[in-house]
Design a protein around this nucleic acid. Structure first.
Length: 294
DNA sequence: AAGGTCTGCAACCGCAGGTAG
DNA sequence: CCTACCTGCGGTTGCAGACCT
């Protein structure tokens, strides 16, 4: 037996939403809350399919949505998480309060992807486009123009981890400094770069060091040996929250999946909620746990 | 100014996971 | 365990506005 359609196609509107429809949807959800999307259209007096209502609400009408351009920091977070999670837009969106998966997906496809390509980075694999498939540890000069700060070439070290979703290469260190002049960009090379001078404070990526080192690939079963190695960077790292409690970490190696899943929950470190509480942003990471653990 | 092309984004579609009966 | 249904996700499409020639 075939699957029944999600709604009655013949009596539903399609295409762009009108202001009146938006208002009906907003009024209904304000009164009754979210949920039961299937019955919502009829109850709200909308000639729309429930799916369409849900999409409209989540991607456009929700009051907590952030409007406007993505910030550089959001760019970095998206790129970093995409390297780890792949096209798991909902998971990435869970790390960016006020942004939707659809918005991030569109932004990736229209902006970041192009930016990475122009800088010689394969947006899917996060590898240099012209590098050989059997990458050996090396330092690759790239020109990721994210900060427009100094012309100092950025580097990507190629020690890699394997994505839990697929065997994609993930450079474990991105330093998002920029090259103002693209002609100086020596992207897509695998040559050993001369050791760049250590970045001064003012040249470092502002406020956010995305450096992440993970010792072992994610495995289908997170064994006791699957633990994280963290970079010794003293600066505040985006992934600092991945660190297990320092006192117990040495004695009790933490399951990679557990650490990530727990740490990814932004409630406890960002939203001021108590441990164990789950906000809306956290919900996707319940899935992440399953996703990594599998 | 007009027509063509490009870009960004809202919305749709199909599928998969979860779950109630 | 099976089936049907609901919800959510990711890929894709289509359109409107911007930009170019």
């Amino acid at each position: 037996m075939g699957r029944s359609p999600c709604c009655e196609k013949t009596h539903t509107n399609k295409g762009a939403w009108t202001k009146e429809e938006d208002q009906l949807l907003i009024n209904y959800i304000r009164t009754h809350g979210e949920g039961c999307w299937r019955s919502l259209p009829q109850a709200a007096g909308l000639l729309r399919c429930g799916k369409s209502c849900r999409l409209r609400w989540i991607n456009y009408l929700r009051p907590d949505l952030k409007r406007g351009n993505f910030t550089e920091e959001e760019d970095k977070v998206i790129i970093k998480l995409h390297g780890v999670l792949g096209n798991k837009w909902s998971l990435i969106a869970g790390r960016l309060p006020g942004r939707t998966d659809n918005e991030i997906k569109n932004y990736w496809n229209t902006h970041i992807k192009r930016k990475l390509i122009s800088n010689g980075i394969n947006p899917q694999s996060h590898r240099p486009i012209t590098s050989t498939s059997t990458a050996t540890p090396a330092t690759i000069k790239t020109c990721l123009d994210f900060t427009n700060s100094s012309p100092q070439p950025s580097k990507v070290t190629t020690s890699s981890i394997i994505s839990p979703t697929k065997n994609i290469f993930i450079p474990t260190t991105y330093n998002y400094s920029s090259s103002v002049d693209d002609t100086k960009c020596n992207s897509s090379t695998t040559e050993e770069s001369p050791s760049p001078p250590p970045p001064s404070e003012k040249n470092a990526a502002p406020a956010l060091d995305l450096e992440l080192s993970i010792g072992l690939p994610f495995q289908s079963k997170c064994t006791k040996s699957t633990s994280f190695n963290y970079s010794s960077s003293s600066s505040k790292s985006l992934f600092d929250f991945l660190r297990p409690p320092t006192t117990d970490a040495a004695a009790k190696p933490v399951s990679a999946a557990a650490v990530v899943a727990q740490a990814m929950c932004p409630c406890k470190w960002q939203l001021g909620l108590q441990k164990g509480q789950l906000c809306n942003n956290c919900q996707p990471f319940v899935g992440l746990y399953r996703y990594i653990a599998n």
